[in-house]
Amino acid sequence: MLLEEFRNRVESLRELIAARNARALLLSKCCNFSWFTFGGRSHITLNSTEGEASILVTGDRLYMITNNIEKQRIQEIELDESLLGEFGFLEYSWFEPSGERRLVEGLVKGKLLSDTGRYSGEHVDITPMRTLLSQSEIDTYRILGRECDEIFSAIVPTLKSEMTELEVQGLLYEAMAKRDIEPLLVLVFSEDSSLRYRHNLSRDVKLGKRGFASICARRRGLIVSCSRSFMFEAADDVLRQHQQNCYVDAVAIGSSRPGVKLSEAFGRLIEAYEKVGRAGEWKFHHQGGIAGYLPREVHANLRSDVHLREGNAVAWNPTIRGTKSEDTVLIGIEQNSILSFPEESTWSALEFEVNDEVVRRPAPLLIG
């Protein structure tokens, strides 16, 4: 199945090359490398946007172009065995500053498309292709989402109010590493930080009475974003606000259906804020959007001119000062699936009815 999906992907890129009257397409962005190879990694550092290998697609050949440091790793680790024979491997020395360019220009005589615009290539954006997930990608995403939920469910009940944000961040790092998950982002919010910052870079501050944690977790290129909240002392006002926050999230999730414009779903999210008496809170933090090989492939706003499709994933993250709700959701033809908060989760849920469907959101965990 993977080889068939891969060859379909190749054909779609060749159709793009023909439509733009070009001779070849060079993919150099890490997200596109992972998408094209169904999870291969061309990066070295986790924050890389352009990798150490590029893929050249021509009308009749595929080339993997990389330096002598990375070639063996890519062949032995990053590519599924069924895909190895699809590529011709081209290598240049790491100390040759224009090695990749020399190889590309030796192969391409005519117009070049490029996802970075390098080598005077005409820039091309393949986000619409990259965000429409195949069955193999969906399977990977489901497993990753479930494991993120399991990590939160295992770690959060063990937290203590005197722990610092940095200590909790370390626990989440360790848990993800043990499962071969790349921690692109781990933000831990103490009570103090949750009231100060919408994006808190974890600090040496004690958790206090409550808080929440957010992660962006990557495996095989796909990224799950999710958050969980906790309390050491019950507080009715905080619970009420969390429910309001979750209602906004549930409306956004329930509104993310095939054929709906992303801007329309965003508009319904704004209306949900207004309904719970929190008008204007959306202006203080981005609200999420389409997810996949980037934490957000397309950010949602009132001008987002993108129609959602079956096979897209979304990750909304509405916030109210002090609270947050976030999970990664697969858009299905009949109903959506919350990948990082599956039905079998042991974490307690709040339920909201949206468009005649029940949307489950994680409740705050009372510890102690």
Rank of each mutant, 00 (worst) to 15 (best):
I138C: 03
L84W: 02
L350W: 13
F89Y: 15
L239K: 10
S114A: 09
L144V: 03
R9A: 12
G85C: 00
I181Y: 04
Y197E: 15
L262S: 09
L294F: 01
I44F: 05
E182W: 00
F152A: 06
L113H: 02
T37V: 03
W316V: 04
I151P: 09
E174A: 13
I74M: 12
K71M: 11
E76A: 13
I69A: 06
V329K: 00
G332E: 02
L56G: 10
L366W: 00
Y273K: 01
L144E: 00
D237H: 10
L2W: 00
F89D: 08
S256A: 14
D249L: 14
K206T: 15
M1D: 12
S214W: 03
I253Q: 01
L365D: 02
R218C: 14
T49P: 01
Q72K: 14
G208P: 02
I55R: 06
M129R: 12
G208I: 04
R118L: 04
L239S: 10
P362E: 01
P364L: 02
W347E: 05
T37P: 05
R130N: 06
Q287M: 14
G280E: 10
N68A: 08
R179M: 05
A272D: 05
I151M: 07
V57Y: 08
E105R: 15
A19W: 05
D149I: 00
F232V: 01
H43W: 07
V248S: 04
D60I: 00
G106R: 08
K324Q: 13
I44A: 11
R321G: 06
D192T: 11
R296G: 05
G110A: 08
G289L: 07
E343Q: 13
R210D: 11
I55C: 05
E351H: 15
I143K: 13
R101Q: 15
E264Y: 10
T328A: 10
A217W: 01
K275Q: 09
W347Y: 07
